[in-house]
Design a binder for these strands. Structure first.
Lengths: 328, 328
DNA sequence: CTGTTAGCGCCTTCAA
DNA sequence: TTGAAGGCGCTAACAG
């Protein structure tokens, strides 16, 4: 790879002049500048970021750490990368994953610190990692993407409670009065939104608990739950639950001769890829993944840029969007 | 952040001795080493990778470029990262995406080169990008993850033809004789595998073409195709197609009173998240995403490590796996 | 076993 | 408008 020195030699100028010409900063005659730029192109010169960073004493890379690898993460990564690129930064990525035992957050930390990133975005919700980040953010700007707000850490989270609240009101607006909330893994926030809505609307609180089984069994469980719901003396006219569970509910309702959405409406949660492919296509609350990624990057660069250098931590909820398809 | 100099000052040793002690390379007395390591911990010192790389004249970062952001990419990224970490490398990520117009491959190139990565893994299949990579790999080790092999470039690709070939033979083994191949976007390789299988097995070639519509309409199209297939005088007893299209077929067959898999078997392609959630759960050919990621990383590090420094380009197909669920 | 010297590629300060 | 000198954090080559 060509270096500044190569350009200097080729043009007969000093490295310094070449450097200024390339950055367009400072005083360089038009002719000199043109000569330099031409030579840069000829030698296919690209400045060395590591050297620049070293000299300027600041890194132009941010690092994203994702806990496990949810499919939806890819949209967050893309949005973060996009925003970072606009700010002139590159993005490194790490995964903490149960599939790869050496990839615990702790094991990753030295690698992350050695990279000396300008900032960190951590997608995680485990108490352990939150604790770690609490220490970490004294040394380096950190923003988390979490399930819930965390008072003393910058973080952005999806307003799951608000999303479900909206969904329940939507169902109510459609005339539904017996709305079941079918609880699944990590549904605490959603449940809160459900409860607030039914209380306000004065309709009965009907909560059914899934057994929090692994993904591969959720569908079957959903089928069974649908059959149980259908057999109630006074069956529900709507259900809110996860997309995964909803896939089972739809199959179970079909088997029980209950028609969706005529007899019962179903609203899912997440808008995973499968939602639009179910039968009928699932009305669901979409995770604003790209938005979350973008907002987290904005927060991070405010800290990095010093605009909000030492301000108090902020928590930003991002609203969900109800994607209306055919199931409700 | 603490530097080597800080450690040297704190211990009263020279920077060099400290450096050797930390790297465990060279001759350092046990006492000195212990003192250094203790101080390192106290000051929370982490070597600066940028400075190390600069001095050693080699980068310890690889870069992955992904064309668009398919959900399945996240598994490839995780596997690549894992392998890279084992080799002591970190991973930067870029996306070329239609959603973000400034993220064309060309626009990304300067950023990538400035990072001076030790190697590149490019997940893409457009002719344009392949052309670019052909130039690029003269300057820096490159491995591509593509749809098809590319003779003059290191690449790994999923053996789609072989996967479908196996699936057809599987169906034949189950007694199916009228097997339809339902063509969708980018199905050329798959079609080849289908054609080879039916030729060998001496059963009729039955190809139905989808209209390559956008994802959101594929499901509806699948429903219609299912109805058409069901109305044939001599209807098929099996269909192979994409997971997306299969979701529509299942819905359409259900509506037409055709039972899957009793009357007709359906085998999908990709094993996307939705496959296990359909009704019935879909038997499908799984993309070996993690395997592809790992193999591509292995290839790259062979080039980087010089083991295969100037050998001829290699093309490695990775076999698919038939995930048997309920639809076939 | 330990310290000194030099320099990776670049940019900032200062002087010309 | 240009150039020379110095140093970011680190390590390799060489002395001691």
């Amino acid at each position: 790879m060509a270096t500044l020195k190569d350009i200097a030699r080729a043009t007969g100028l000093s490295m310094n002049t070449v450097s200024r010409a390339i950055r367009g900063s400072g005083y360089v005659s038009r002719q000199t500048a043109e000569l330099v730029l031409k030579t840069v192109r000829e030698l296919d010169y690209h400045p060395n970021r590591a050297a620049q960073d070293l000299r300027r004493r600041k890194s132009t890379q941010i690092t994203v750490v994702a806990e496990s690898y949810d499919y939806l993460h890819i949209e967050k990564l893309a949005a973060i990368k996009e925003y970072a690129a606009e700010c002139g930064y590159t993005m490194g990525v790490h995964f903490t994953s149960e599939d790869y035992p050496q990839s615990t957050f702790n094991a990753l930390l030295p690698d992350i610190l050695e990279q000396n990133p300008a900032g960190l975005i951590i997608i995680a919700s485990s108490g352990f990692i939150i604790g770690k980040v609490r220490e970490l953010c004294r040394k380096i700007p950190c923003v988390m993407i979490t399930f819930n707000g965390v008072p003393d850490i910058d973080c952005v989270y999806i307003d799951r409670a608000g999303g479900v609240y909206d969904a329940i009101r939507y169902l109510y607006g459609k005339g539904r009065r017996r709305i079941v909330f079918c609880e699944t893994f990590r549904a605490r926030n959603r449940k809160l939104g459900y409860q607030r809505a039914v209380r306000e609307l004065g309709i009965p609180e009907l909560i059914v608990s899934g057994t929090m089984k692994p993904l591969s069994e959720i569908r079957r469980e959903g089928e069974q739950i649908a059959k149980i719901l259908a057999s109630w003396d006074n069956p529900p006219d709507a259900v809110q639950t996860s997309d995964y569970m909803a896939s089972g509910l739809l199959a179970g309702f079909a088997a029980a001769g209950v028609e969706v959405p005529r007899d019962v409406s179903v609203i899912g949660f997440d808008d995973r890829e499968l939602a639009g492919m179910l039968n009928p296509p699932l009305t669901t609350l979409a995770q604003p993944s790209a938005e979350v990624g973008k907002v987290s990057a904005q927060m991070l660069f405010e800290r990095i840029g010093g605009v909000r250098k030492d301000g108090p931590p902020e928590n930003i909820p991002v609203p969900m969007r109800l994607v209306v398809r055919n199931s409700a």
